[in-house]
Amino acid sequence: MATDARTAILSKIRSALGTKATPEAAAAAWAGLPRDYVRVSTGTKSELIERLIDRLHDYDAQVLEVEATDLKAGVAKMLTARGATKMLIPLGLSNALLPEGVDFTVDTGLSAAELDACGGVLTEATLAIAETGSLVLQNVAGQGRRAGSLVPDYHLCVVDVAKVVGTVPEAISALQATAGLATTFISGPSATADIEMTRIKGVHGPRFLDVILVH
């Protein structure tokens, strides 16, 4: 009887390695791997925020810093600047973010075509990474499913400064507990350099990304 592919591959691996590794041995060896790199950033919170803003600007994202009390006005200001009138919002986004005079559509499982009809999307984020200028979104209240922050052409993301971490290792540690959620790292607007290595903003994802940092 022919062996199935799974059995064949695993047995070839074991014969190639000359051993049958155990999960316990693997875990012990993993724990001893060298990690001689920066895990936790040094620097004050305001230095981190400054770095994050610098990195976001590098990606051509606009950044607005506001106090929590001025958040709604901040959102209004950004949307007006972009001329955005029809915005998608995920389930669970706080009403406190939503200014008057804008058409907000809640993503209750819209079709791809309906998502495409929204000019922009407003979300929050799980965290932001200063070193790389990245926003991390997960499928939770206020952030929504992955397609929501993808199909509309404009993404406005509201980030509480308390959620800003310094380094990639800090971000991964913070995400460990919810690693099973659908998670997207977003670093600037969609981009390509496939044509003569010229960076062009916006191929398929949002062509415009703005960030509001809430103090």
Binding site: D58, T132, N139, R145, A147, A182, T184, F185, S187, P189
Partner: peptide, 21 residues
């Protein structure tokens, strides 16, 4: 790969996420 601090998008998903994807 591309000389960026981070590429624009990293997606991590685990199996099937109901209502998402």
């Amino acid at each position: 790969a591309t000389g960026e601090r981070m590429n624009p998008y990293n997606s991590v998903w685990t199996g099937v996420h109901p209502g998402d994807g």
